[in-house]
Amino acid sequence: MAHVDGPAEEAGLRDYWQLLKPRLMSLSVFTALVGLLVAPEGLHPFLAATSILWIAIGAGASGALNMWFDADIDRVMKRTRNRPIPSGRVTPSDALALGLFLTVLSVTMLGLTANWVAAGWLLFTIFFYAVIYSMWLKRTTSWNTVIGGLAGAFPPMIGYAAVTGTTPLEAWLMVALIFMWTPPHFWALALFVKLDYHVARIPMLTVTHGRDETRRQTWLWSLGLVAVSFVTAFTAIGGPLTLAVASVLNAVWLQRAWAVVRRDDLDSDADAHLAERRLFKWSLIYLFAHFAVFVAEAALGPYGGW
Results as ranks from 00 to 15, higher is better:
Ala153Arg: 07
Trp253Pro: 08
Ala161Phe: 03
Leu65Gln: 01
Pro203Ala: 13
Val226His: 05
Ala97Trp: 08
Pro86Lys: 09
Thr80Asn: 00
Gly63Val: 00
Thr164Asn: 13
Arg75Cys: 09
Arg83Glu: 00
Arg216Thr: 14
Gly159Val: 05
Ser87Gly: 05
Leu27Ser: 01
Leu191Ile: 11
Gly42Val: 07
Ala95Phe: 00
Leu287Asp: 04
Glu41Thr: 09
Arg81Gly: 03
Glu41Val: 09
Gly60Ile: 02
Ala71Asp: 00
Ala48Glu: 09
Leu27Ala: 12
Pro40His: 05
Val248Cys: 06
Leu189Cys: 07
Ile237Lys: 08
Tyr303Trp: 15
Pro86Gln: 03
Val231Pro: 02
Pro40Asn: 02
Leu189Trp: 10
Ala119Leu: 04
Arg89Gly: 10
Ala259Asp: 08
Ala95Trp: 10
Val29Arg: 05
Ala257Asn: 07
Thr206Glu: 03
Leu225Cys: 08
Trp187Gln: 05
Leu195Gly: 15
Gly60Arg: 00
Glu297Tyr: 11
Ala61Phe: 04
Phe186Trp: 13
Leu24Thr: 13
Trp253His: 12
Met157Asp: 02
Gly99Val: 06
Thr141Asp: 03
Lys281Ile: 11
Leu220Gln: 15
Leu20Glu: 00
Phe186Pro: 10
Phe46Asp: 07
Ala151Leu: 04
Leu300Lys: 02
Met157Thr: 13
Ala275Gly: 06
Thr208Asn: 13
Leu96Thr: 08
Val163Asn: 06
Pro168Thr: 02
Asn66Arg: 07
Asp212Glu: 15
Ile55Pro: 04
Val146Tyr: 13
Ser62Asn: 01
Val29Asp: 10
Val248Met: 10
Val207Ser: 06
Lys194Asn: 13
Met109Pro: 01
Phe30Ile: 08
Ser106Pro: 04
Trp17Phe: 15
Trp143Gln: 15
Phe192Cys: 12
Lys281Gly: 11
Leu110Ser: 01
Ala49Cys: 03
Asn250Val: 10
Met135Pro: 02
Trp219His: 04
Ala11Pro: 14
Val248Ser: 07
Pro7Phe: 11
Ala118Thr: 02
Trp172Thr: 11
Leu122Trp: 01
Met109Glu: 14
Gly301His: 06
Ile178Gln: 00
Met135Cys: 10
Glu213Ala: 14
Val228Cys: 01
Thr50Trp: 12
Phe124Tyr: 05
Gly304Gln: 06
Thr218His: 01
Pro156Ser: 06
His44Gly: 08
Ala292Leu: 13
Thr50Met: 06
Trp253Ser: 07
Thr208His: 12
Gly238Tyr: 14
